[in-house]
Amino acid sequence: MNPDDPRVRRTRRRLRTALLSLAAEQELASVTMAAVARRAEINRATAYQHYADLDALVADAMEDAVAHVAHCAALCPLDTPDDATPAPLVDLFAHVAENAVLYRRMFAERGGARFSELLRARLTRELLSGFVEGRRPARHVAVPAELHASYVAGALVGVVAAAADTGRSPDADARDTWLLLTR
């Protein structure tokens, strides 16, 4: 199957959209590939031609969210003064608040460990790229960039999961996370 074929891209987009729609309505553990295929208005066998199982579809469907979180985190200037929360961090938590139901379900249910690992790995890669280029606080340069990126990524996964549950404002979550990262 050619992933560049417009029909393949269209079918995968329909499957991802159907999954996210179902996940917003019901617990992810109760979603089946058959239900996703029905919602996408395609044959279940076709769905399995594109994704080996529901977990693979879930991971692909969440890629946009993972990319958004990673992009925001990578834009954070880690040398911002402690009393000024970086705007990309506020954007990150605004995104989580807007999609809180989906994030709660992704962290808590089917594929929770897989989603956490996907998010942590993507965050680590994005952060490491910036850290290697020197975009990190001078007080941390003695720490290997790989370790620093892994540490910040793990912390962000934890606070994103918590933010999906708290119902606090994105500004408060961003401010408090910034305080934790800069202390």
Rank of each mutant, 00 (worst) to 15 (best):
V157W: 04
E41T: 03
G154I: 09
D79L: 01
P3E: 01
P6Y: 10
R7G: 02
L54H: 02
R183I: 10
A113C: 08
A100N: 00
E109F: 09
C76H: 08
A155L: 15
G112R: 05
R168D: 13
S150N: 10
V160S: 03
A37R: 09
D173A: 11
E98G: 15
A70G: 12
A87Q: 14
L102K: 08
E98W: 02
A138D: 14
F115T: 02
V132P: 01
L123Q: 00
R110E: 07
A29Y: 01
P77L: 07
I42G: 03
A29L: 12
R114N: 03
L128C: 06
P86F: 10
R175F: 06
L15A: 00
L19N: 10
W178A: 11
L127Y: 02
V143M: 14
R120L: 13
A61V: 10
S169V: 02
Y103F: 14
A61T: 09
V101A: 11
A164D: 10
A155Y: 11
V58L: 15
L127Q: 00
T124C: 08
P170D: 00
T85P: 01
R44K: 11
R13Q: 15
V90E: 08
R120T: 12
L123V: 04
A40M: 05
H50P: 10
E109H: 14
L78K: 00
D83K: 05
